Simulated assay, not measured.
Amino acid sequence: MILTSARLTIRPFRPEDAPALADYRSDPDVARYQSWDAPFPLDAATRMIAEMTDPAAPGWFQYAIDHEGEVVGDVGVGLHDNLLQAAIGFTLAPAHQGRGYATEAVQRMLAHLFTDRGLRRMSAECDARNTRSVRLLTRLGFRQEGHRVEHTWAKGEWTDDLLFGLLARDFPASAR
């Protein structure tokens, strides 16, 4: 599956993408609100890419965000066992932040999941301090459904989690 938007291609990772994946995931600012630690070794990136085999199967699948042949980030889709709902996550390399790429990639993925694959609901979760992700999710129509105070022990501290949801019927028609 390959998706395109105005400026981006969203596609499965290829083995040759491992160095770029390891590079931006090794940035401490990128890893700050994520589940992995920096540095993110090349062998971990290589293994991660090799283990992703079926985007239609339940579980997480990471897609590369490609801009003009360069991997600039990723969009992850965690498909539920019922194949009717999923969680979404996203990461962008620091050099490519602030240009709307994450919004464009997530919006295109949502359009695919709701329109082409018929999913009914998407959810997202983020660290409450990650204001850029909160703004992106809100901009795309997600509503905040929960706030779990000091819920996650991550990187030596308790963090608050914000929970978001978006139903297919609430996804803006203009974004499809």
Results as ranks from 00 to 15, higher is better:
Arg7Trp: 13
Phe142Thr: 03
Leu79His: 06
Glu70Asp: 14
Pro39Gly: 07
Tyr63Gln: 02
Ala128Glu: 11
Ala38Asn: 05
Arg176Asp: 01
Asp66Val: 08
Arg47His: 05
Leu83Tyr: 14
Pro41Cys: 02
Asp54Met: 00
Gln85Met: 04
Asp17Pro: 13
Thr138Val: 11
Val134Lys: 01
Asp116Lys: 15
Arg32Phe: 08
His67Ala: 12
Ala124Met: 08
Arg99Thr: 11
Thr159Glu: 11
Gly100Cys: 12
Pro41Glu: 03
Leu113His: 08
Leu79Ile: 05
Glu150Leu: 05
Leu79Gln: 05
Ala64Trp: 13
Leu42Val: 02
Ser26Ile: 14
Arg7Phe: 13
Asp66Cys: 06
Ala87Ile: 06
Gly59Leu: 00
Ala111Leu: 07
Asp43Val: 06
Arg135Leu: 01
Ala175Met: 10
Gln107Ser: 10
Ala38Met: 05
Leu140Met: 03
Arg117His: 03
Val77Gly: 07
Ala45Ile: 04
Asp37Gly: 00
Thr138Phe: 02
His96Tyr: 15
Thr152Lys: 13
Met52Arg: 01
Leu21Thr: 11
Trp36His: 15
Asn130Gln: 12
Glu104Tyr: 12
Ala128Met: 07
Ala173Tyr: 05
Ile49Lys: 07
Ala20Pro: 15
Pro55Phe: 09
Pro15Glu: 04
Ile10Arg: 09
Ala173Gly: 12
Arg135Ser: 03
Ala31Ser: 15
Ala102Trp: 05
Gln97Ser: 02
His147Asp: 03
Pro41Asp: 06
Leu113Pro: 03
Asp54Arg: 03
Leu162Arg: 11
Leu167Ser: 04
Leu92Tyr: 14
Phe171Leu: 08
Gly98Leu: 13
Asp127Gly: 11
Gln34Asn: 12
Arg132Ser: 03
Ala175Ile: 08
Asp160Ala: 10
Ala105Trp: 09
Glu70Phe: 11
Arg117Phe: 04
Leu113Met: 04
Tyr101Ala: 04
Tyr63Ile: 01
Pro15Val: 04
Arg108Met: 08
His96Asn: 15
Ala86Thr: 00
Gln107Met: 09
Ala154Asn: 06
Asp27Ala: 10
Leu21Gly: 08
Phe164Pro: 05
Thr9His: 09
Gly165Ala: 01
Thr53Tyr: 00
Pro39Val: 04
Tyr24Ala: 10
Leu163Arg: 00
Ala105Ser: 15
Arg169Thr: 12
Leu163Asn: 01
Val30Arg: 13
Leu110Gly: 01
Ala50Lys: 04
Arg47Gly: 03
Arg129Met: 14
Gln97Tyr: 10
Thr159Cys: 12
Gln144Gly: 00
Met52Val: 01
Arg32Asn: 10
Phe90Trp: 14
Asp54Pro: 06
Leu42Lys: 01
Arg32Lys: 14
Glu157His: 10
Leu163Val: 02
Asp27Phe: 08
Arg14Trp: 15
Ile65Gln: 05
Asp37Asn: 03
Ala93Ser: 15
Leu84Ile: 07
Arg129His: 14
Arg99Asp: 13
Asn82Asp: 15
Leu83Pro: 09
His67Glu: 15
Ala87Lys: 03
Leu84Tyr: 13
Ser35Tyr: 12
Ser5Gln: 14
Gly165Gln: 00
Tyr24Trp: 14
Gly100Thr: 05
Gln97Lys: 06
Gly78His: 07
Glu70Met: 14
Asp161Asn: 06
Phe171Glu: 04
Gln144His: 02
Ala38Cys: 03
Phe90Tyr: 14
Ala154Glu: 13
Thr53Ile: 00
Glu16Trp: 13
Arg135Thr: 00
Ala93Gln: 15
Thr46Ser: 08
Ala128Asp: 07
Lys155Thr: 06
Ala105Ile: 12
Pro28Lys: 09
Gly156His: 10
